[in-house]
């Protein structure tokens, strides 16, 4: 059993080195310095056996297979050649996995929709409410103006003024009242509709589930080798793909 991951990896690696030294004492070693992007979260498996995160390792000369991986990134298989007695630099840049890109798109869309759902309907309802309030105020004012014109008819002693009142001002005020009433009814209807829609959208929002990212590349990567864990434990994961087509 191997202890914490660091110690485990060290003992494992030392063991490998001892084995290699015993079996191939005649062979020379070289160093490999790995610059992996994203730095800090890169892991790799050497020759299908050892999972490491070290930036610099010493290996027997010759070609070695490497599988690089980092969270949210695609695995990258490559062969690096170690030259005896020298330090070889290898630069690896891992690309985002397809699953992560799809997840990112879905998460962005979800966030965008969430923002719209959170602020859009209340704003629209608020706008409709303001429009409705203004329309109702306008209708009430039109009604008041018409009442004032009726009062003016009763108090006026100016015949030409009365004629203008009846032929122009009252018909104009009637038109204004008609339009204001229609606007008040329409805007109030819109307000009620947007309020109801807002409420329903708000209810629907509670049931929405944010997209979760499942790092399938990690499962595949973990399946390539035994992974030492904490508390003297470890896991052996395996991943496989069944092509349907």
């Amino acid at each position: 059993m191997i202890g914490s991951s660091g110690i485990g990896r060290g003992i494992l690696f030392a063991g490998c080195m001892v084995c290699l030294a015993l079996t191939g004492a005649a062979q020379n070693t070289g160093k490999l310095r790995i610059f992996c992007e994203p730095a800090g979260s890169c892991s790799y498996i050497v020759d299908g056996k050892h999972r490491l995160t070290d930036r610099e390792i010493t290996l027997m000369e010759g070609p070695h297979t490497f599988v690089f991986w980092a969270p949210e990134r695609r695995m990258h298989d490559t062969t690096l050649v170690v030259v005896a007695g020298t330090t070889t630099e290898a630069r690896v840049q891992l690309r985002y996995s397809e699953e992560y890109i799809t997840y990112r798109h879905r998460a962005d869309r979800f966030t965008r929709n969430e923002r719209w759902i959170q602020y859009g309907p209340p704003l629209v309802t608020l706008g409709a409410g303001a429009w409705s309030a203004m329309s109702i105020t306008r209708a009430l004012k039109a009604r008041k103006d018409l009442d004032a014109l009726a009062d003016e008819y009763n108090t006026s002693t100016y015949p030409a003024g009365i004629t203008a009142l009846k032929n122009e001002r009252i018909p104009d005020a009637n038109i204004e009242l008609r339009q204001a009433r229609i606007a008040a009814f329409v805007s109030s209807g819109v307000f009620v509709a947007t309020g109801a829609a807002s409420y329903l959208i708000r209810r629907h929002r509670r049931t929405r589930i944010a997209p979760a990212f499942e790092d399938k590349e990690k499962v595949r990567f973990d399946g390539l080798v035994w992974v030492p864990g904490t508390h003297s434990a470890g896991t052996w994961a395996m991943g496989f793909t069944i092509p349907i087509r």
């Binding site: 009604r143 018409l146 009442d147 014109l149 009726a150 008819y153 009763n154 006026s156 002693t157 100016y158 015949p159 009365i162 004629t163 009142l165 009846k166 032929n167 009252i170 018909p171 005020a173 009637n174 009242l177 008609r178």
Partner: peptide
């Protein structure tokens, strides 16, 4: 509420032609 005002019904002011 009260609707539009019909000018034709306004005929009770002696100053109205």
């Amino acid at each position: 509420g009260k609707g539009e005002l019909d000018p034709g019904t306004l005929t009770n002011n002696p100053f109205d032609p």
